[in-house]
Design a binder for these strands. Structure first.
Lengths: 235, 235
DNA sequence: CGCTAATTTGAGTGACTTCAAGCACAGTGG
DNA sequence: CCACTGTGCTTGAAGTCACTCAAATTAGCG
């Protein structure tokens, strides 16, 4: 199991996706490459735990990471997923609090580790980067506030439809319309904030209503406007 | 209605509470004072609406502001309250998005208006201030994530107890143990994310259980550890 | 080794319970 | 007098429990 690819150079990586590091100078990118760690993580590995002190944040080079909080009686509440090009753990590093979520590998991942000092240095010296980071946080905060409203006011049915649309926007569909992230029913339930059985029943209903088609964990989108309507979105 | 007090000097105001502007230099504080607007707002006034473009943010010199989103069928979801020394609207200014909440005056308020350019200038030139602002946002994001988990997993009863404790920490009690913010049952319901009737019933139950005492809108805390337990907090 | 047997994990269903929303209406007090 | 509070009653959405079934893993063993 020792075929970790060569450590990627930040300056090559950064421009492939609209990375948070896109405003860094050549020198800063080189320094970042020099400072950072790099490792492979298998599915199911915990990258960091809720409540642990962070020594840096992670940039995802490959794979999908699930970020969740552990609530009453150990039930997980999924806060978000992070994919290629996104960074995780930055919130806790910046606020100097302990991690507010647990990060677990959903799809085998390659992660770069950016030490706290390096991140702070960049924030202090590069105002554009700092601004970019701030804006990302603000956007995330806006999303969180929206989700609070939804979870407080919408029915489970509406929320499930909404989450499906959200996952589509985040991870996309293949040519056949199949969602490009594979989640168990339980995970789906833990995003929506409901019981696994309820999620199963509602997915069946959506299938009956010809909104989606299901093949195991594959979810194929048949009627996107219908889902949007079911989720009470954009109104 | 023209007895607006003299416009407060930022340099005098900033040190009274742990303001976000505490790291500004004398010059920067003077410039801030010079740039800013100042006005009195009566209870019920809308300061800005969800979806509107922001031209600046507001710093609260006096009063309490209610920040809420409007959900399905106009039902309001209260996101937070802001009081003396806190700033509102900054998220939308920084992220250059439209306002994600509506801001309404709960208790007659005196607000300073900080134009966007002034805020951006400070962020660009004062790394310490920028850092402080970022940390505030990160903390708020952490809180939002926690609340998502609570609202998704806890019962209404637990959430109501939790909110009462939270309001206590935010607004304090007087000597008699009475909560120093006055909310209608409906507003309380709109924080918790439940129906007004349910809130009324639960408050009565809390009273029966000797956790609180109620006199109209006055809520007196009788058994704080009991409330903490009811809210499933710190476990 | 290869091929069952045993165990685990996830998906799906049905029956039952319960929490909380919704509706209607009666006070009440600023 | 209108907005807010409070109460009773009903209904429904969603949670819980208890299973079955299928597929995937792991163990066992000749």
């Amino acid at each position: 199991m020792k075929n970790i690819p060569e450590i990627p150079e930040c300056k090559n990586c950064v421009h492939n996706f609209k990375s948070i590091f896109k405003d860094l100078s050549e020198d800063e990118l080189n320094k970042l490459s020099f400072d950072k760690g790099y490792d492979k993580y298998k599915k199911g590995t915990i990258i960091y735990n809720e409540g642990s002190r962070m020594t840096g944040c992670f940039c995802i080079n490959q794979g999908i990471i699930k970020l969740y909080k552990t609530g009453i009686e150990g039930k997980e509440q999924i806060i978000r997923f992070a994919k290629k090009g996104e960074i995780i753990g930055y919130r806790s590093v910046l606020s100097k609090e302990t991690a507010c979520t647990t990060a677990k590998v959903l799809n085998d991942a390659l992660l770069c580790f950016i030490p706290s000092v390096t991140l702070f240095e960049l924030v202090q010296t590069n105002a554009k980067f700092s601004m970019e980071l701030m804006q990302m946080t603000c956007r995330e905060l806006g999303d969180a506030n929206s989700y609070i409203t939804d979870i407080a006011q919408k029915t489970v049915r509406e929320r499930l439809a909404e989450i499906l649309i959200h996952l589509k926007n985040e991870f996309g569909l293949d040519n056949a319309g199949t969602l490009q992230i594979s989640l168990t029913r339980e995970e789906l339930a833990n995003i929506v904030g409901t019981a696994t059985e309820t999620t199963i029943r509602l997915l069946s209903e959506f299938k009956t209503d010809k909104l989606i088609d299901i093949n195991g964990r594959e979810i194929k989108f048949l009627n996107i406007p219908g889902l949007i309507k079911t989720g009470n979105l954009y109104e």
